[in-house]
Amino acid sequence: MTAPIDRIADCLKLSRPAHAALAHAGIATFADLTQWTRKAVADLHGIGPKSFVELDPAMAERGLGYKSP
């Protein structure tokens, strides 16, 4: 198991636009991602449904979740 501070870019194979969207929003680690609602992440330009196929299981594996709305 890995730590929640893992860098997303080092752990997941997201599309280039998805990585760029997360970086532009200041989301570099899974811990950063916990400060966002799932909807707010989905609303980022470059994040699509396929991104969540990678993000959701990775968050769950680390015992983390998105911020509640």
Results as ranks from 00 to 15, higher is better:
M1H: 05
T2M: 09
P4G: 08
P4A: 03
P4R: 10
D6V: 04
D6W: 10
D6G: 14
D6T: 12
R7S: 09
R7V: 12
I8M: 03
I8G: 02
I8V: 11
A9Q: 10
A9V: 15
D10V: 13
D10C: 06
C11T: 12
C11L: 15
L12S: 07
L12P: 05
L12M: 12
L12Q: 09
L12W: 13
K13T: 14
K13Q: 15
K13F: 13
L14W: 13
S15Q: 15
R16C: 11
R16E: 07
P17S: 13
P17L: 05
A18G: 08
A18Y: 13
H19G: 13
H19R: 15
A21T: 05
L22A: 08
A23W: 07
A23C: 02
H24D: 11
A25R: 10
A25N: 08
A25E: 03
G26V: 02
I27R: 00
A28H: 14
A28Q: 13
A28F: 03
T29Q: 08
T29M: 04
F30S: 05
F30T: 04
A31S: 14
A31P: 11
D32I: 05
D32A: 05
D32M: 04
D32S: 09
L33G: 05
L33K: 11
T34P: 07
T34I: 10
Q35D: 13
Q35K: 14
Q35H: 15
W36V: 03
T37R: 09
T37D: 00
T37W: 04
T37A: 04
R38I: 02
K39L: 07
K39H: 12
K39Y: 05
A40E: 12
A40L: 01
A42V: 08
A42M: 02
L44R: 05
H45G: 01
H45P: 06
G46A: 02
I47C: 02
G48P: 03
G48M: 02
P49Q: 01
P49C: 02
P49L: 00
K50E: 02
K50A: 06
S51G: 11
S51Q: 10
S51M: 07
F52C: 00
V53M: 00
E54V: 07
L55K: 03
D56M: 03
P57T: 03
P57E: 07
P57R: 01
P57V: 00
A58W: 10
M59W: 08
M59V: 06
M59H: 08
A60P: 10
E61T: 13
R62G: 00
R62P: 03
R62Y: 08
R62Q: 12
L64G: 03
G65A: 12
G65L: 10
K67D: 08
K67R: 15
K67V: 11
K67C: 08
S68R: 14
P69M: 10
P69D: 13
